[in-house]
Simulated scan of single mutants.
Amino acid sequence: MKVLIGGYTKKTSKGIYELLFTGENNDARLGKAENIISVGGPTYFQKDGDLVFTINNAGDEGGISVFKLSDHGSNEVDRYLTPGASPAYVGIDREKKLIYTANYHTAVLSVFHYSESGKLDLVDQVTHKAESLGPRPEQTDGPHPHFFDETPAGNLVSCDLGNDTVDFYRLEDNKLKHLAQYKNEAGFGSRHIVFSKDGNYFYVVGELSSKINVVKFNENTWEFESIATYKTIPEDFTEHNGAAALYISKDGKYIYNSNRGHNSITVFKINDDHTLSLVQRVSTFGDFPRDFNWDISQKYVVAANQNTDNATLYLRNGGNGTLTPIQKDIAVPEGTRVLFTK
């Protein structure tokens, strides 16, 4: 097993790094980070077999690139770049061979199809408008979609930090059709979303508010009901914080989010009525943890700290959801994205 970590390339990072995972339980360890893909600003990426679909910040242009991995390294097989900023998020459907990107700066949502060899074809794009911009400084300059991926029923969903909205789409005849919109409270800063195991609830995290909103919804009638909202950081924490990544365990029992500023991962238990109960806040032992992720068994978790160029490895207790740090100060530069791989 290996872990891939990529991020910004503003200081010393050259792109995406691979760290070998060895051992098990408390003796599990990550090895030295080795650069396997040289690319500008791979702040988010996905993988399908030996293909890596990554954000590419190429100076005056931005977009995505596709790299093919081999025993001899990696080579770029295709790219789609446009003038301006690169996207912030990459989603994937490996069965349909579709890639979804959300561009925080240009407000463009894109759908690509890719071939077995990794060649990209743009399917469709939509641009979010300034419909309901929030009051915070980060919102007044326009819409900022930060997530674009699939729903339990196979529709698409975007979280827009600028508009405080969750927007739902369907890809119909290779065209994106807007279906419905859920509005978070003003200043929420909608960033990432996960869905309950039964598909009847979603949990959306607000970057600017450091909150998680629990929403009951019907993906046939598009009715929404806000159930509850929870702070991801302590009430008495007054310094700046930006809530970031959001994950739900495959058994549907626990939700995890990262906090950039409080520098922690918050663990919530999902109750039978889909409300949340705080289980744990654990340090990431570094500064500015944008992303974290787990292996396929969800027994091990790795968090990357962007500003302190380090990562932390945890052992996850599947019974009570808690995380126990087992390796700290793993050197990796400017990490913002974590992905376990074989």
Rank of each mutant, 00 (worst) to 15 (best):
V215I: 13
K216M: 03
K216L: 06
E219N: 12
N220A: 13
N220Q: 13
W222A: 04
E223N: 14
F224Q: 07
E225G: 04
E225C: 02
A228W: 02
A228P: 08
T232I: 11
I233N: 12
E235V: 08
F237A: 01
E239V: 03
H240F: 07
H240W: 07
G242T: 03
G242P: 02
A243C: 15
A245F: 05
A245P: 10
G252R: 01
Y254H: 08
I255T: 02
S258E: 04
G261E: 10
H262A: 04
H262M: 05
I265T: 08
I265V: 14
V267A: 10
F268L: 05
F268Q: 07
H274V: 05
H274E: 14
S277T: 15
V279W: 13
Q280A: 09
S283I: 04
S283Q: 05
S283R: 00
T284F: 08
G286P: 06
D287L: 11
P289V: 13
N293V: 06
Q298D: 13
K299Q: 14
V302A: 14
V302E: 12
V302S: 12
A303Y: 05
A303W: 00
A304M: 08
N310K: 09
N310E: 11
T312F: 11
T312R: 03
L313T: 00
Y314T: 08
